[in-house]
């Protein structure tokens, strides 16, 4: 996985995405722009972060879970 390491911790790009979500950017387009990542990486990364329980999707926006917020620090 690109955003989650085999040990379950977010990678550099995963952490970058979590911090971008933490700063109030919730749509994949906003996250891509703020984090300087291609939109395809953000969409696939958000899938992984969701599966790992670090973000939750509400309509077309993403928010951090408690666990995600802890890792975004």
């Amino acid at each position: 996985m690109a955003c989650i390491s085999p040990d379950g911790k977010p990678t550099e790009s995963g952490t970058k995405m979590l911090r971008t979500v933490n700063s109030g950017h919730g749509s994949p387009e906003e996250i891509a722009k703020e984090a300087g990542l291609p939109i395809f990486r953000v969409r696939s990364g958000l899938r992984e972060l969701t599966q790992a329980g670090l973000v939750i999707q509400k309509e077309d926006r993403y928010n951090l879970t408690e666990k995600g917020a802890e890792l975004a620090k």
Partner: peptide, 13 residues
């Protein structure tokens, strides 16, 4: 090499 990707991840590009 960049994780699991779907074609739809590229929508808009």
């Amino acid at each position: 090499t960049h994780g699991v990707l779907k074609l739809e991840d590229f929508k808009g590009s």
